[in-house]
Write a protein that binds this DNA or RNA. Structure first.
Lengths: 195, 195, 195, 195
DNA sequence: CATGAATGAGGCTTCATTCAT
DNA sequence: AATGAATGAAGCCTCATTCAT
């Protein structure tokens, strides 16, 4: 944001292209072109094409982690915490779609150093969710369901909706989607509990 | 299954490697080696490396489509249909993890011919879910939430749990996970509706 | 000679170019072009550009070693052996000028894997010379000079003359040069011993 | 020597690296680093990387030329001149091993501008030797051998011994090597003239 | 003068695809 | 049908050189 040196330009360009074409289908040439720098300049700031990806994931996701935890730590009630997490994750994914799409893409591979990063990041995030849920269950605020499954499910529903939905074109629609997810996650789709 | 000719061997090998290394990081050589055929033989059955991927996704997903729709069409109740879908999708993803991981990986890109396939397949599947949910709402069996969001969320939670959970080591655990998801999706995590 | 497959063509082409331009100034493209094969074909036979050089030195020099030792082992007299060595080395260097020029070039570097080969080869050859000289001294056939220095000097004078002389255009001239070297090495340039 | 400005530092650094890694394997970066100047500074003093090499060879060898000719011109006897040349060349090569190794390396190529310099320098030096030898023969001081061959041989034996011998660790050993070469060159290795 | 960030030409290597056997 | 040697387009990366500070 502030520092608009070449390094930032390269990261921004790389993010955009990686997230649409995937890491392997992107050439350093393309990144340099979109960043409006020479091909060689990329190598002034990054040792390797993969390093660009790693830095992108590292920096971006450290940011999401901090961002969300900040919003949560003030809340004491587990239910409230979960509601806040759902809300913030949805918005973070939506506001950083290219980065999060990239994360989703690369997290499924296994061999590259990059994938393990994406994988690790997702794991630690889900673990955090699980802990919040566990506390909610202990506190008698939430139903005693398997917390790991619920945490993973929460992550999955929010991220897919955020990345997939094409019609979230304005704040109003985003809020509508959020409300739907909150209802779904906390109350379910069934009309009556007896269902 | 029955036909163990080279074509199958190639598809099986490709699936395994694609799903772990990604399409772009896999060489035709590797596929041929794992399939124990000559490199040229791959081109006897497929015009292109990408065609291997496309056939893989096409066949595999057509299969999932048929598989799930078969289980549903006998059911008339929308809630029951959704329960069956959740159950079958979970199991199908779990039983075909490499293929579904591949689908998840490649579906996030946009430019490649392959991605559009993965994307298209996922879209049509979610659309099907949405229709079931819509009918359930019309029939007064489900809460009147935004059906597209709910459909996407359902897809997201099930697929992520199926692909992500490492501890589903036996049928019993799989059933436990399924039950958790069913509870979550239909009743939510909140203890009381008033929550 | 006999096997004129691509591998030989590549080695022959590489030798010619390496020996004139040096290893580092030669492109794989050039080698392929002179060998009349595709650029990629070079990599069917050699893992690396450097491997081409190594194979070249390895094969070529193993050949020289065998060639010369064969001519010597029948001789018993040390003086005769040395005369034969001088003769054969001169001729071998002369007949394989490109290869030996390459050896001389690359043997002076130190870092590359290739150089160490060239270096090693030269060392073992000189050691062999030294042993012959030592025996000659012990047998009272040669003057008791420092054998290592003499061996190195012999190698140096023969190889430089062979590679450097431009006017060795026919067998007669080659024999004249050889005679000169034999006289020089065995009798020296001084007119009288008392000099 | 006296002028220790950046130019000297660059030449010194370049010499050391060129002589071990070869010209083509050395980067301007490395030279600048070892000379403790900025990369750009190299271009303040030299137009081109190759110019560094050329200057190095030019200056260094002009120096050797002057050095040796100075020692010779006072001597009238051809034999004495040759003895002095052998002595001085051996010492000069030994004292300036990196430079002379560089000369030997680069003199074997032909295409580069640099090589032709190295080549030219060596040629003119050998020509000088040849003239001395010719005069010695005319004066009846030396045997009437082919002077070009003898000159080349002398150059070859001295330079190889100087660059190759690893055990010349002190002045005494150097003198011993010199004595051996003098004996060898003037009297030969044979015990009796009748050999 | 001194510097090093910026650049792009060029090299090595990989790999999808072809084709003769 | 099956093969793998052959190919060249294309990508990553290096590095000599320039130039603004």
């Amino acid at each position: 944001m502030v520092t608009d040196c070449k390094r930032e330009r390269i990261l921004t360009a790389a993010l955009e292209i990686f997230s649409t074409q995937g890491f392997a289908n992107t050439t350093v040439q393309e990144i340099a072109a979109k960043a409006k720098v020479g091909k060689g300049t990329v190598y002034t700031y990054f040792a390797t094409k993969e390093d660009v990806l790693i830095d992108l994931l590292d920096e971006g996701l450290a940011h999401m982690g901090k961002h969300i935890e900040e919003r949560i730590k003030l809340l004491t009630d587990s239910g409230m915490k979960l509601r806040a997490i759902l809300r913030e994750q949805l918005r973070y994914f939506h506001n950083n779609r290219p980065l999060m799409r990239l994360l989703s893409r690369e997290a499924w591979g296994q061999e590259l150093g990059s994938s393990s990063i994406a994988h690790r990041i997702r794991s630690s995030y889900i673990k955090m969710l699980q802990e919040v849920i566990d506390k909610g269950i202990e506190a008698g605020e939430l139903r005693a369901l398997d917390s790991e499954t619920v945490a993973t499910a929460l992550y999955g529903m929010v991220s897919l909706v955020a990345l997939y939905a094409k019609d979230i074109t304005c704040e109003a629609k985003l809020e509508h989607v959020e409300m739907t997810l909150q209802e779904l996650f906390f109350q379910g789709v069934a009309l009556s509990p007896a269902f």
